[in-house]
Design a protein around this nucleic acid. Sequence first.
DNA 1: ACATAAATTGTAAATAAATTACAAAAATGA
DNA 2: TCATTTTTGTAATTTATTTACAATTTATGT
Lengths: 107, 107
Amino acid sequence: MKKTEEQRDLSFDFDFLNKLVVGIGEVSQITGIPTRQIRYWEEKGIVLSLTGEEGKNRRYDYENIKKMLLIKELMDEGYTLDASADKVKKRMEMIEETLNKLQKKKI
Amino acid sequence: MKKTEEQRDLSFDFDFLNKLVVGIGEVSQITGIPTRQIRYWEEKGIVLSLTGEEGKNRRYDYENIKKMLLIKELMDEGYTLDASADKVKKRMEMIEETLNKLQKKKI
DNA sequence: ACATAAATTGTAAATAAATTACAAAAATGA
DNA sequence: TCATTTTTGTAATTTATTTACAATTTATGT
């Protein structure tokens, strides 16, 4: 019985990540990237936000927050923004794959 | 080699959840609970927010967002707020335990 | 070196969202 | 019913975000 409850609680966490949305201020707090820079990355098409109408506040999902964290890591190592973005795109695909596999197995 | 990268990416997600902070508007969007109600639950001491100084915006961590989701589920089933909060407190402890075990094993 | 273009950061004015505090409404129990 | 507690509404103020334009820094070619 313990087992099934644990399973439920873990798959719940994937549901959680899927529903997750975070404002730009919190993303900045989480990642350490200034809001100005986040907007610039978005302007350049490197990250995407879920903005309803024009003028409304930006919302970022899990995938894009992860992307920013990874890009920041690479830039801290000395890569340019564009180079980092390219590298991250590839890593993201692998992570996505792994996550899907896990989600399917529900563990 | 693929294995170690997957491991890194998954442990990264635990790091992510640990760093996660979300504003009240986004929590409302994620959970479907009105902001007014979230503030009231906090006033009653059922959930906690990480607020720096007085007057600044509330921030909620992963644990408290999970708590709200669980409470809402129970209330939708007909339990009162207090009864739901009690039940959830117990379930939370188990989830926490499970999460810690997983985090330790890095899988 | 120099000029030009491109990339990045700063900031003011306007808009959106959150806070607090007080009050109104609903529920609970004697 | 009446009194008490719980829950929701909302106005005024404060905080945070958006956009747009400008300033600065960095790259590129001559």
